[in-house]
Design a protein around this nucleic acid. Sequence first.
DNA 1: TTGCTAAACGGAACGACGTTCCGTATAGTC
DNA 2: GACTATACGGAACGTCGTTCCGTTTAGCAA
Lengths: 200, 200
Amino acid sequence: MSLDAGGAGQGTQRKRADSVRNEQVLLAAAAAVFVASGVDAPVREIAGKAGVGVGTIYRHFPTRADLIIAVYRHQVEACAEAGPALLADTKSPHSALGQWIDLFVEFLVTKHGLAAALQNDRDGFDALHTYFVDRLVPVCADLLQAAVAAGEIDPSISAYQLMRGVGNLCAGDGKDPGYDAGHLVKLLIRGLARPALRRG
Amino acid sequence: MSLDAGGAGQGTQRKRADSVRNEQVLLAAAAAVFVASGVDAPVREIAGKAGVGVGTIYRHFPTRADLIIAVYRHQVEACAEAGPALLADTKSPHSALGQWIDLFVEFLVTKHGLAAALQNDRDGFDALHTYFVDRLVPVCADLLQAAVAAGEIDPSISAYQLMRGVGNLCAGDGKDPGYDAGHLVKLLIRGLARPALRRG
DNA sequence: TTGCTAAACGGAACGACGTTCCGTATAGTC
DNA sequence: GACTATACGGAACGTCGTTCCGTTTAGCAA
């Protein structure tokens, strides 16, 4: 639950370089495994992917739920930072929005697993949920507004509504082989474009 | 998935008496354990409560999900049959309704666990859900109508709406120690009574 | 560079779980 | 009472999350 991001503040022990590195590797590996195999993936699989022993995972994240929470926060942060970056790197805000939503969809896999992992901690879950909403809605709003300003989409939807819609499309994804949430989301984003631009 | 309730129909093998008896004992024990310890209760605990070995459970119910499904169907049936019986045994339909809702609340524990147990079988879950609605809504409607006819409650609510409300009150119950769904349900039922009767 | 030590590491080991297996007991039949 | 298909009990198996501990190494001082 520490919000301190490892700064060398006085009094806090300086962490070893390999420890810091492994923590990042673990977060990335866990995120990848969660997307590939779902949040029920065994800890050993994550350890293997990261190239570390299971003991290392448990020193960084005392319990499985802690790991999922950490991945969740990490993903929220990565998603939030990716928004402005995507906007800066492309000439088309609508395209940036599409790429950002892709990241968001990947992130939702972790988010949906969170509820199951935090069965006994509704307060903790709610806190993470509001953190997620507060952090990401403004980012999405910026992307939307940029696309509107560029004349690529109509201002017919709020950031919150779009994110809710995408979230709902992704609910239960991965369980039914006949359901491809990712594709539906792509269609939704394409549908946002103004008619004159709606191609491919 | 057999709908055949063990009748000695031609071609079907006659089951041994102890087998039939154990199946009933197991359904009752599992239902009790699910209510007491949640649907995540270990199979061994159910076997112990029923006084049988785990092997016996697995001969009757090949997998854990099968057991939960069987308990679910059994509870739906018991709940459905209890409605008319309660109505016949009491002079106050409103009281009968209250007792019936108590059974329904116990049943919901199993129902909520069902979704988790059937993660990979959305169709199966939906089928069971419609079975549940079709079977129980009419029973609840009869109880409601009897209470209305007796002048004990106002006809201000439909059976479906009442059951949905109770179901929603019970969602997430047992996770937060500060939340007692059973008590809220009791208040709801009491609130159904016409003002002149609303005591204790 | 070398030596020291606290910190971090890897993976075997543990206990609990769902599930399977098989030797034993028994209900049903003659 | 004897025979046999059926059902039973519970030990055993493989997998999981988690713990433990002997080994390795990063960071630092000489």
